[in-house]
């Protein structure tokens, strides 16, 4: 079942065409990873899917209804977004931050109720932050901070969680910790995951479906074995790579050299 879909969307930033006539659908309960080189439009696509950017043409449907027709609050009860490099005010505790996840459910004249407290508590437990609940967010390590932000999105009780490069700035152990947490939330709570990833091995290991973007268009879409191929790595990233299956069935890829002829085709910055 399709939960979120983009239908022939075009997104422009200023005059610059970033997403060009792209269609994609996200299956409920699955993990979809979006990969591609810098400037291919990954983050922009995610922003469009989260309604942070409005497509100039085409529509985005959530549960078969145009996403533009949702009220801001109602959308926040269905879709949660984890942005890159979010910054918390200096005196915010982890619990304070997670409590903001209940904001879309609260009327302005009401403060939090018992249900909110329970949901916040559960989010803290699920992300392993219950012991750190009273610590200031900014005093935590990078991985813990990222978990705190994820806990906030969990308190939104979303159907879909959109994440923009959730492992950036983290060391390898914390990267795996975050990826495991995301996979866990998908498996145990059935939250549909859409994330932008840089690391192809993460994408291969954790995704049900991978979408490859090239200059604002969908290059290919499928399961990891279909997508992570030497041909794709050559065409999209301009590298020669070894790809093999590990003993435990994981798909591994290692880029070994740049194919110089390909590197001239792509310029431009990410998140422009």
């Amino acid at each position: 079942m399709t939960i979120l879909s983009a239908d022939a969307i075009t997104v422009k930033l200023g005059d610059k065409l970033i997403i060009n006539n792209l269609s994609i659908s996200v299956a409920a309960g699955k993990i979809l990873s979006i990969v591609g080189p810098n400037g291919s439009g990954k983050s922009t696509l995610l922003k469009a899917l989260s309604r942070n950017l409005k497509p100039s043409t085409g529509t985005i449907n959530l549960f078969g209804v145009d996403i533009q027709s949702y009220s801001a609050q109602k959308l926040a009860c269905q879709v949660a977004v984890l942005h890159q490099a979010a910054q918390a005010p200096g005196d915010l505790t982890v619990r304070n931050l997670v409590e903001y996840g209940r904001f879309p459910y609260q009327k302005w004249w009401k403060t939090k109720n018992k249900d909110d407290d329970e949901i916040v508590e559960t989010a803290l437990i699920d992300t392993g932050l219950i012991k750190l609940a009273d610590r200031l967010v900014n005093s935590l390590s990078g991985g813990e901070q990222q978990r705190a932000w994820i806990a906030m999105t969990l308190a939104q009780r979303p159907q879909i969680l959109l994440l923009d490069e959730p492992t950036t700035y983290l060391d390898v152990a914390h990267q795996l910790e975050i990826m495991d947490l995301i996979a866990d939330l998908n498996k145990k709570q059935g939250i549909t995951i859409v994330m932008v990833l840089h690391d192809l091995n993460h994408a291969a290991q954790y995704s049900d479906t991978i979408a490859v973007l090239q200059q604002g268009k969908l290059y290919s879409l499928g399961n990891p074995q279909q997508i992570i191929t030497p041909v794709m790595l050559r065409d999209i990233f301009g590298v020669a790579a070894d790809i093999w299956l590990a003993d435990d069935g994981r798909l591994l890829c290692l880029a070994k050299s740049r194919i110089t002829a390909m590197t001239t085709t792509k310029t431009g910055g990410e998140n422009a």
């Binding site: 989260s50 309604r51 942070n52 009220s71 801001a72 609050q73 109602k74 959308l75 926040a76 009860c77 879709v79 949660a80 977004v81 942005h83 979010a86 910054q87 918390a88 005010p89 903001y100 996840g101 904001f103 879309p104 999105t153 939104q156």
Partner: peptide, 11 residues
């Protein structure tokens, strides 16, 4: 919390 986060929370 920042514009993007606030928007994500339905503000």
């Amino acid at each position: 919390l920042g514009d993007e986060v606030a928007r994500g929370l339905g503000l």
